[in-house]
Structure formats: C-alpha cells, structure tokens
Design a protein around this nucleic acid. Structure first.
Lengths: 251, 251
DNA sequence: CAGTGGTCTAGACCACCGG
DNA sequence: CGGTGGTCTAGACCACTGG
C-alpha cells in the first residue's frame, strides 16, 4: 500500500499525517536538511486534499520541526532553529548578550558505564555508556555558571567524539540532536565548599540551580545541572497564555 | 459599514478576524461567559468563508481565550481556564498537590497612591492607586512562600473591595482578570533577617525568588515577588519546542 | 519566471451533545 | 433531534523567491 498511515485510522487525518512525518524526522529517516516532498506530492501520497496536508505541515513548522520557504520547499530543521530559546537558553549567547567575553573551561570529561546515580538522573532502567562533563562558563573573568552534564551515548553516540574544547555541550547538543520534550526543575541552594570554589563565591552564598532533562520521544538525551551565582543571575521568561508566541503589533 | 475590521487590510484575513475578536475580549466588550456569534454568523459579519472564521476561532481556543462546545457555541473563557498552569502556578493547588493543608495569612493590605518604587515595579510612568498586599502561604505548619504583591487598581478596580481573607490574591486575579502577557524573573538570594523571619528559615539560607509581572495588552495588572525556601521548593516546567503542548501517545 | 507555499472559497458530511 | 463546531474537499488566486 502506498499510504503510509496506519490502516486503522484514529483521530483527525491531518493529525495523523503530522504524526507520520514527525516520526520520520524524530527517528532519523528524514535527517536535518532533508527536503520534504512538497504539498502537491504529499496530497497524492496520503490521498487527501492539499489543505489537509498544509494543516499538518503548518503545525510542524509552527513547532519548529520543519522550515518552509516559498519556491524552495519544506526542509527538516537543523535542530538548533529558534526552538524554545526561552526555555533552553544558550549559555554563550547569554553571556555575550550582556557584553561580556565568553570562555569555556572543561574541568572533566569522562566516558563510562552508567552508575546507579547516572541511571537515576537519566531516568532509565538499563545500564549504558554515558558521557559525564563538568565545565565552567566564564563571563569575562567572572564565573557565569558551573555545568554538570550527563549525556546518554545510546541516544547521542556522536557525542563520544566531541571534546567540547570550544563549543559548550549544550550548544553542541542543540545543534545536533532534535528533542521533543524537556523539563526544568529550578531551586535555590547554599553553596557548599566545593560549589563555592567552582563558582568563585563565598561558601554559603545563595545559588540558583537549574536541572534540565531532555528527551527525544521516550529516549533520554541529556540531564544537566547548571549552577549560577544567585545574586547576579536571573532566569527570565516572557510568555503568553497557552504557549502563544507574543505577537508584535504592526506599527 | 457592517464589517468591523480596519478599512486598510494588513496581513492575513483570519489573523485580522482573530485580533478583532481578541480585542473585544481583552477590552471587556465581550465579558467572560459571553457567547460569541457562531461561525455561520461571523462568516457573514466579516464577509468570508466559514473556514476562515474557523481558523481564527480555533486559534483563540488553542490560546485559551475562548472555549468551544458543539451545539452550545463558543464562549469567552473564565480567565482561570487552564491557561499557563506551568508558568503561573496556583499556590493553593501547589500546596494541596503535595498533600499538605493550605492556609493563607494576610500580613498587610494597603491601598495607596503609587510611590516611585511602585511605579517602577509596575513599569508605569503616571501615579495611580495601587493595592499592596503582603501575605504568607502555609503548607501545614511550614511556610511555603512569602508573597509581596502590587496590584494596579486602574486595571483591576474590583480588587479594592477584596480582603483576600481566604482566597490568595494570585488565585483571585487569575479568576477575575484576563491577561495577555507575563514575565517571570527568577533568582536566588540569601535570606536577610526580615525574610528569614517571614519564611521561618535561618538567616542566610538560600531562597528562591520569583518576580512576575502580568499585563493585559499594554496595561500592567500586577507585579508580585514570591519567596520560597530554596531547599524544599522546586519550580518545575515541562515543555516542548516552540510551545507545543506535550501530546500523549495513544496507547 | 515559474515553482512552491500561503491563503481563501463554497460547499459538504459528520460527530457530538444540549434542549 | 437538530444546531453547532470539526473537519475535509477540490479548486482558485496570489506572493514570494530561488534558479
């Protein structure tokens, strides 16, 4: 059968088309940069009207998974895209936005079989190879953040080859791995001796901790703990109800 | 002219219809609970096809501003709705979700002409009447959060009559005032003597501070500072790229 | 300049659910 | 049961832009 949709239709046609294409992208069949068949082809593939295909593709474009250009066609996004700039800030951009020179210092980088603690952080049951990276992000001479990251090498095998000498792990991941879900957990804590030393602050001073887990479908990609000196750092999120993108009024 | 859209069309028709309806709601012409004209009426009002109206209304429903029910019609949402439960948590629900008894204690409540500091917090230029509320949220016997809130009585005149004896200000506002934009600023700080006393923690212990400003259009509604004991509180946000609502896979 | 997406139309059928 | 929204169709014209 030509039609790649499941034989027992459930739900809206446009939603099923969307899921079908989404799966091809998330499972890697259609890699970043791949040119998606155009609407007039897909409408034959799925045997439906062009508006129906358009609805599916428009939704995918709105969610950032694909990018569309007239005349050129529709392309699978490079994972970086503009996705969720608010929720997952780029550390380097963050530092440079405040006019400071960015510098990355990798403290340690270790590939290992996951410990019990690692598996808990990644929320997985089975042992696997993981990459643990500790690094510091500098804004000028000041420490902007300390990062404690764990990468699932099953989901991201390419990471094993990356030294992260120049590009921060978070930036590299955003540029190479598409993600579908993430979770931030934010808390405050008093810096212990070790953390105080790493951040260059006094022991006991308040720090902001952002723990973030990222998944592609059900597979974990990475779990990271970012520590910021609390006095200076502010996590800012601008938003509208139900995830609306704030719209600018035409002048 | 019957057509309520601006005479010089700019942008997509469906988007202009959406903005037109959105304005009626945000400016209060169509109050919460109001039944919006049905699609077949609106399509005559705006002189366009039903699909075009449907696109506008679907977008409004997706953003939570209206609710739609077959046979019944489309209604302006009660502001509470499900809007942005992640970004603007309800304190009482938060406490009860962890199985604790919720209690609200209003420390002070003062209506006054805005001070210079008030105007800065609300980000307005002109003086106005404001309501300043300090209160504590208890989870059982423990202080869950200390709240320092400022309400713009120009935008929310009804608030002047509310004692907040039982319902927290944030909950009341969510249930009575529609908002279109908000911003969270998150940081960590060491509790000074005053804050430590209010939160029932040791002086110097790390606390999480969430500053939030809320607007309806360009008018400020409220500015609030919430302080949480950092060791226990965690602000959790689950999200997908570009504001997608996380979808559940059909089993 | 022609291929592609963006949008709209006029109509249709259906599912749902309130009266 | 019938009114309402939900969705899809088959087609059209247009705007943009890449080749």
């Amino acid at each position: 059968m030509d039609n790649p949709l499941s034989e027992t239709p459930k739900g809206q046609l446009s939603a099923r088309i969307r899921r079908d294409i989404e799966q091809r992208i998330l499972l890697g069949e259609w890699a970043p940069g791949f040119r998606i068949p155009m609407e007039r082809e897909l409408m034959e593939t799925y045997g439906c009207a062009r508006m129906t295909v358009n609805k599916a593709l428009s939704a995918l474009a709105a969610s950032g998974l694909i990018e569309r250009r007239r005349k050129a066609g529709s392309f699978v996004s490079q994972p970086l895209s503009q996705s969720a700039v608010i929720e997952i800030p780029d550390v380097r951009a963050e530092v440079e936005a405040i006019g400071q020179a960015y510098r990355l210092e990798v403290i340690s980088r270790q590939q290992r079989r996951s410990t019990r603690a690692d598996m808990e952080r990644l929320n997985v049951q089975s042992p696997r190879q993981v990459l643990a990276v500790h690094c510091r992000h500098f804004a000028g001479l000041r420490v902007h953040a300390f990062e404690d990251r764990l990468i699932d090498l099953v989901s991201v095998p390419d990471a094993a080859e990356i030294a992260f000498a120049d590009e921060p792990p978070g930036t590299w991941l955003r540029g190479h791995v598409p993600w579908s879900e993430a979770e931030n957990r934010i808390s405050a804590l008093n810096a212990d001796a070790s953390l105080a030393d790493r951040l260059g602050v006094k022991q006991g001073s308040a720090c902001l901790q952002v723990e973030r887990s990222t998944w592609r479908g059900k597979r974990p990609i990475t779990a990271v703990r970012m520590f910021y000196p609390g006095e200076t750092y502010r996590l800012i999120a601008h938003f509208s109800p139900k995830g609306d993108v704030p719209r600018r009024e035409p002048a």
